[in-house]
């Protein structure tokens, strides 16, 4: 596969253009983060670089604390979602279910996703206050569970379905129990799906604003998006601070992508060896 044909050059060119288009706006934010607020609104392309926004952001907010809160909420959600959704995906994808049952479950999952988030915000506020978990990461995990489960189940069902039946049948004949087939054969084969679903759960929980602002109130458990939104104020939008915060907010997700990628690609190879 080493020939340098014309289509190949076009392909690479296409990817490079795609990468540039994706990166340019990010560079704009990066640039903004080094500008004095007065230069941001000046409209001039030239400016004196400064750390003003960085200093201001980290002195006015306990951003470290928000980062930890976000991490706890997002990773907690991801772990639970993956455990619950991979089981459900396996059950739906690999066992025989009556048509109506599958349709019912899938349809309700989709319907949950379709509901405007505001529908859940009010009731969840009351539930978390009642349970005494209001303003804790647990409240967020509870809410994100509901929001992230549907998509993860849908994705993992697809990946469970893609696991070749022959391997499972062979294991069954060897006397393996269903739970064993799930955990030792199916799960490893579903790794790309798990990595994808996990990444999505993490990122969406990480970026959620609506529930974070409803279910937490103080820096004790407030998450990054609320911290960022606090810079978008009544009489002014602090572009510089938002840019700084955004740059830091993207780091954990970025690490997750790099980490998860190895698994997104590795999935079937492991399966093939085992099979």
């Amino acid at each position: 596969m080493k020939k340098l044909s014309l289509p190949r050059i076009l392909l690479v060119a296409f990817l490079i253009v795609g990468a540039i288009v994706t990166l340019l706006p990010v560079l704009v934010v990066f640039r903004t983060s080094f500008q004095y607020p007065r230069d941001i609104i000046s409209g001039s392309l030239l400016f004196t670089p400064t750390f003003y926004n960085y200093i201001d952001t980290f002195t006015s907010y306990r951003f470290g604390r928000l980062l930890i809160n976000s991490l706890v909420a997002a990773s907690g959600t991801t772990v639970i979602v993956l455990a619950v959704a991979s089981l459900a995906g396996f059950s739906l994808g690999k066992f025989h279910w009556a048509n109506w049952a599958v349709s019912l479950i899938l349809a309700s999952l989709l319907l949950i996703q379709m509901l405007p988030p505001v529908v859940f915000a009010g009731p969840f506020y009351l539930i978390t206050r009642q349970l005494g978990i209001y303003n804790t990461p647990l409240a967020l995990i509870m809410a994100y569970l509901v929001l992230q489960l549907p998509l993860s189940v849908l994705i993992l069902r697809q990946f469970a379905m893609a696991v070749p039946n022959e391997i499972l049948e062979a294991a069954h004949i060897d006397g393996a129990s269903n739970q064993m087939i799930f955990s030792s054969i199916s799960l490893p084969l579903m790794v790309p799906g798990i990595a994808t679903a996990g990444l999505l759960s993490f990122v969406f929980s990480w970026n959620d604003f609506m529930f974070a602002v409803t279910l937490t109130s103080t820096t004790k458990s407030m998450t990054i998006p609320v911290g960022i939104a606090n810079f978008s104020q009544d009489f002014q939008v602090l572009y510089g601070n938002i840019s700084v915060a955004a740059a830091f907010a993207a780091i954990p997700g970025f690490l997750m992508v790099i980490f998860a990628q190895r698994y997104v690609t590795r999935g079937l190879t492991i399966g093939a060896i085992k099979g």
């Binding site: 706890v72 990773s75 907690g76 772990v79 639970i80 455990a83 978990i133 303003n135 804790t136 990461p137 647990l138 995990i141 004790k220 458990s221």
Partner: peptide
């Protein structure tokens, strides 16, 4: 998961 829930509850 369980540990995290305990932590989340306890730390706050």
């Amino acid at each position: 998961t369980v540990g995290l829930m305990v932590f989340a509850r306890g730390s706050t």
